[in-house]
Amino acid sequence: MARMHTRRRGSSGSDRPTADEPPEWSDVDSDAIEDRVVELAEQGHDPSQIGMKLRDEGVTGTPIPDVKLATGKKVGEILAENDASPALPEDLRNLMEQAVRLREHVRENGQDYQNKRALQNTESKVRRLVDYYRGDEIDPEFTYTYEVAADLLEE
């Protein structure tokens, strides 16, 4: 797939091997996995960080290579069931953080035209994602501005 704001093609990566069931060496109970997911979310970890922590640390020392194979549910579904899902979707939050950092940088360095362009591109991506999530994940009247993003990220 092509990149959004350049004429270059995207970079391809390797695919995860297909599997229908978890490996035999990872025999952790699905309830224990769900409890660990909720515990990590309460500690302030994002869903992608939770997946990496379960892959690396696991539950009681046994790594979990794939949460969906082990439990039948994705990390986001587990968080939604236990009312532990984040207020903003992770991709939108990360882009807002990047836009706020870029805005502060451009304010201090007015002649940095490359980062002015990067700020325009990032804010364009944020607005596009806000349109995508509006109504389902975020408030229907939500509109992106720097002030709103800075306030949301302070919380």
Rank of each mutant, 00 (worst) to 15 (best):
K73L: 12
E141F: 08
S124L: 07
V67C: 02
S85A: 15
Q49N: 05
E141S: 15
V37L: 08
A118R: 15
K74I: 01
D66V: 00
K116L: 11
D91G: 02
R8C: 05
A149H: 07
E21K: 13
Q114F: 10
H45A: 08
R127I: 08
V126N: 05
G10D: 06
I33H: 06
L88I: 11
T60D: 13
Y132F: 14
G135E: 05
T6Y: 03
G135C: 04
K53P: 01
E137I: 02
E81R: 09
T18Q: 11
L129R: 12
T6A: 09
E81M: 06
N115F: 11
D20N: 13
D91H: 08
Y144C: 05
I33T: 04
E147T: 10
A87F: 14
G51C: 05
V59A: 08
R16A: 12
N94H: 10
M52N: 14
S12A: 11
A150H: 06
S11R: 07
R8H: 08
N82I: 00
M96N: 02
E155K: 07
S12C: 04
R117C: 05
G110I: 01
E39M: 09
E81F: 02
D91L: 05
E108R: 00
R8A: 13
S124F: 05
P22A: 10
E147G: 12
W25M: 10
V130I: 12
E24Y: 06
D35R: 14
D15S: 14
T122Y: 09
T62V: 15
P140T: 10
R117E: 14
V130E: 08
Q120D: 14
P86G: 03
D112W: 02
L119Q: 04
Y133N: 01
E81N: 14
R103T: 12
A41T: 03
E57F: 02
P47K: 00
R128S: 12
D151M: 09
G44L: 00
G44R: 04
E154T: 10
S12K: 09
R3T: 11
L79T: 01
D20Q: 07
L152G: 00
A41P: 04
T62F: 07
R128T: 09
L102N: 01
V75R: 02
P23V: 13
P89A: 08
D83L: 04
L92E: 08
D15E: 10
E77F: 03
E24L: 12
L69W: 08
R7A: 15
K74Y: 11
R101I: 10
G58V: 09
P89Q: 06
E57W: 06
A84Q: 08
L153Y: 05
G58H: 00
L54I: 03
G72Q: 08
V130Y: 11
A149P: 08
Y146A: 10
R101E: 12
D136H: 13
E39N: 03
V106K: 00
R7K: 06
E77R: 07
V38Y: 01
A150D: 14
G72S: 12
K73D: 13
M1V: 14
D83H: 09
R103A: 14
H105M: 11
E34W: 01
D83Q: 13
V38W: 02
Q49F: 01
M96Q: 10
